[in-house]
Design a protein around this nucleic acid. Structure first.
Lengths: 342, 342
DNA sequence: GAGCAGACCGCAAGCGCTTACAGACGCGCA
DNA sequence: TGCGCGTCTGTAAGCGCTTGCGGTCTGCTC
């Protein structure tokens, strides 16, 4: 307090009207001089608003989040919000306490990548409770059947599109790398592959499906060594695809000469692989923006019905796909693929 | 307030002694029943402690942070702290406002990856000011000459070790990929390479040094096409290394047959490349732990002299290095490299 | 010159918690 | 019975801000 009341100071520092220009300047100057920094904690307490959103990640180390988080963060900042981040480390229990913590910090809304996608038993109690209490939150990455606000990436259509690309090149036997049952997202990728195949009167054979397991590499090599084997694989993500390069090479098979590979979830390196990998790419930025939009909408009107959005993925055609050996695709006449994209 | 004063309630909810067991139980039960969630904001205000550390990243999208951040976060949580994260987006001005915001939120300490490593002009004013005000903060990733608390990754020794590995294989002309002058970390990598070479009586020729520029790829190919050319390159990071694979391949040269490649900063995919890349790997976890330790130390005793730690990097020998063509290394008798590691 | 609107400004209450302090109570002892 | 002491509990004053309300002052109108 320099020469005036705290009320006046408060008014100038919050840009409220009703203060003489002269006083305003004087106060600002003093504030500047003494290096005054307003106490947000007190401000928030007083305003009964925290200006905080919570972001709860199932596993923060999954880089897939970085772009997403970056965008959320930027959007939040634009409207003067901070985002608190918490890591569930793939543990439902931690997820639960994270939610509790966020509430203690009076986060005004939550954006969460849940640990589980197929909720069994009590795994979703905490979300149901949130919903019950009208606490604004949006689930991302995993669709839900409980009327939660959510945004997901379209897995089935993407899988179908990738598979159709292979079918279009002339492949007739297509396998799947990295299947898992208890993960909805992955299950959907398998499902999409299956559907596209069955559209073409083909099927995804169980024996052509390699699941996540320690011995996958041996199984895979064994599969590749058979006389009758797939000429292309859909990989569940590009880490799997990348891992597949080596056994294929070790069997003296070539990509895409003998085996074509497509995968999900473009990471920035997949274009640098040799051959560059054909992948889908999640529109993280758009997902983030959608999630934020939903949250804000919910905030301004808690009564709107559940919002469930899905955003598509883009396909990047690169070098890892070509017609199967001994076959010339209807579309192209052999030779080296030149498609490129970033 | 159920049947007692707020003071008593406060005491039980903060696990303070001096409350009859009976009352304690009753209060806990009521709290449970009404789903009471303490207001951290008020608590912090009252305690005059925020229980918050700030983490300011130069560019959050740089995945190199994920492991680091994860660890910081975990450590902070263990002692009941939250960490607020801010993104400077490679912009000093944003860095400045981020610091301001953190102070408004009364963060008790800051961990920052500064935007610039070689501070010029006013780029470090804000840090000097922090130091002046005894505000606890630690700079990471970039060494400083101003007596700031800091922890860095050892670049020069690592570069020397990588280069010595190449020298040990018999390489006599070694180039550098991705040089940059105005970045300390990169400059140190160049410097380390240079030193190791001069130890061996060799030099790093300017013409063998490819800098970050749009035309780097053409320059690189031109260099590779000369009769006299390097037989190995040190790459400034593994994205560069990965990008180098292609032009080398396009010239029908092989890795490591014709050209050996080593690089810095192992990302999880570099082992999946074909051939797998020999790289160094930052001990992110250790860096995080060191940074946190320094911060805590400073917190408990603001007067200790500046702490500057450096943590080493590990070298992962993989497949991208071999003796130069027409040469048999003293250590090994040709053939295929089998070194492997994760 | 009295009355009044409007612009400024300060008082003080209040945000939800903590905690120093003092009161109430039970106990043992002289 | 009276006193001192230790234990438990409530009162109230803050923490640093916002803001409704009422007071003061200026300048205008009639």
């Amino acid at each position: 307090m320099a020469q005036t009341s705290t009320a006046t100071v408060s008014r100038v520092l919050s840009n409220k009207p009703g203060v003489t220009e002269e006083k305003r300047q004087r106060i600002l100057q003093i504030a500047q001089r003494v290096g005054y920094s307003p106490n947000r904690i007190a401000k928030n307490l007083s305003l009964k608003k925290s200006h905080v959103f919570g972001f709860i990640a199932a596993d923060i180390r999954n880089m897939a989040y970085v772009e997403f988080f970056h965008r959320i963060q930027a959007l939040a900042r634009e409207i003067g919000y901070q985002v608190h981040i918490a890591d569930s480390e793939q543990d439902v229990e931690k997820e639960r306490v994270n939610i509790g913590l966020m509430r203690e910090h009076r986060a005004e809304g939550l954006i969460v990548f849940p640990v589980h996608d197929w909720h069994t038993g009590s795994d979703l109690d905490h979300f149901l409770q949130l919903k019950l209490q009208r606490f604004p939150f949006v689930l991302v990455g995993r669709a839900e059947g409980y009327g939660f606000d959510s945004v997901v990436s379209e897995e089935i259509p993407t899988a179908m599109e990738l598979t159709r690309h292979l079918l279009g090149l002339g492949h007739r036997r297509i396998g799947f790398l990295g299947a898992e049952d208890d993960n909805r997202c992955i299950a959907e990728r398998v499902e999409g592959t299956r559907r596209a195949l069955s559209e073409a009167g083909l099927e995804l054979r169980p024996s052509d499906t390699i699941a996540l397991r320690d011995e996958w590499k041996d199984e895979f090599k064994e599969l590749l060594s058979r006389r009758e084997r797939p000429t292309a694989f859909v990989c569940v993500n590009d880490v799997w695809a990348m891992m597949a390069y080596r056994p294929i090479r070790e069997l003296n098979l070539s990509i895409p000469g003998d085996i074509s590979l497509v995968s999900f979830g473009n990471n920035l390196w997949s274009e640098h692989l040799i051959p560059a990998l054909t992948t889908s790419v999640e529109r993280s930025r758009e997902i983030a923006e959608t999630a934020m939009a939903i949250l804000l909408r919910r905030l301004e009107d808690p009564t709107v019905p559940p919002m469930q959005e899905s955003v598509g993925q883009d396909i990047r055609l690169r070098e890892s796909t070509a017609p199967p050996p001994g076959n010339v695709s209807p579309a192209r006449a052999g030779g080296k693929r030149v498609a490129r994209s970033g």
